[in-house]
Design a protein around this nucleic acid. Structure first.
Lengths: 195, 195
DNA sequence: ATTATCTATAGATCTATAGATAATGC
DNA sequence: ATTATCTATAGATCTATAGATAATGC
């Protein structure tokens, strides 16, 4: 029943990856350790050889989810050297993102649960959050670094709130209106203060 | 053990009120029927004389929470006839609101859980959401009703996202920076497009 | 007589641990 | 010999129901 050290490391990665997906899909309380382990092909007892607690996994999985998003966003931005902010906003506020929280932004799928997580989880999240601020700082207008950072925060807040509002509504027409309205507002909004 | 019809109606209200508070504080899964009933001074078995299921209570409590917020916001806005938008934004993005999710905006405390709730809950939420759009439409700049509505959506999205970002972080300095940055951006941001 | 609430419990979860098992890696 | 995983289970939840109890309201 024992597996090689390398296999074990793979298992650990698989558990984190599955958790990052299912937590975003079902919430931190929406899936249990047993089901996660079953998805990876292991039994639930084995979980505690990899992690000290579910809480520890929540921290790892949250960081993983945000890190994945940052990578994807970087790619999207690099592939649109002109108007990167507009392209990124549309990408974030797309119908596709709305319908697939399990592979999307952690703040949109679990943001309001983060405040109720232990400090260790919030610390892991903050680390990635700062990276995202830096990434967005490069594509928003603004004369100084400080202004760009502010713009990045404002943009991210608008995107997260827009997606949460759109997802919270059972009416497709209204949720599409929300996505379209917020994403249209961003380039304009941002130009006002900075450049 | 039976109580009068009026007392029973009061109990029902108390259950909804307690739920609206505790759900925002601990999440929809963070408090159970038994504890809610204990808070009201009843036993858990009695719950199902008032509601068919916990899900039904989640719908009622969500609507209640949003309705309370709308009332408070209306008051805040009416008490600041000049610069209502700025005053409201500062009120929403205050440290006080950050520290008290249990009496604050449902979208900030439970927004990302709403997508995982059954349709009946989302319908109850949407009803109040439209009222909020109307309320904010009155204080944002814009030449036409359509533009004002769009501005209202953009503002609400920014506020919700800003509060969620601020709460998700374990560092007081960073979270205050987020609140201040987003709330400073709103009057500017909004003037750009509309009036 | 009706019924709001209580007591007791069923049945399903869920996190975590203990000890057994069997494969790795010295 | 060490250890990653499995089996089995403890102990704590949680939603929901059934039947008893006692107060209301006809």
């Amino acid at each position: 029943m024992k597996v090689s050290k390398q296999k074990m490391a793979e298992h650990r990665e698989q558990i984190i990856t599955a958790a990052a997906k299912r937590f975003r899909e079902k919430g931190f309380n929406g899936i249990g350790v047993a089901d996660l382990m079953k998805e990876v092909g292991l039994t639930h007892g084995g979980f505690y050889g990899h992690f000290g607690s579910k809480e520890e996994l929540i921290g790892m999985a949250s960081q993983r989810a945000l890190c994945e998003s940052t990578k994807k966003w970087k790619k999207v931005i690099e592939e649109a050297p002109d108007r990167p902010l507009e392209v990124f906003s549309r990408y974030y506020l797309s119908r596709r993102h709305q319908m697939h929280p399990e592979t999307g932004c952690l703040f949109a799928s679990l943001g309001s649960e983060l405040d109720r997580q232990p400090r260790s989880v919030k610390e892991a999240v903050m680390e990635e959050q700062l990276t995202i601020f830096d990434l967005l700082s490069r594509i928003v207008p603004g004369r100084t670094k400080a202004v760009k950072r502010k713009q990045a925060i404002v943009v991210l807040a608008g995107l997260i709130g827009g997606m949460i509002l759109a997802r919270s509504v059972p009416d497709d027409v209204l949720s599409e209106e929300i996505l379209e309205t917020v994403s249209s507002s961003i380039p304009n909004c941002v130009h006002a203060d900075g450049t």
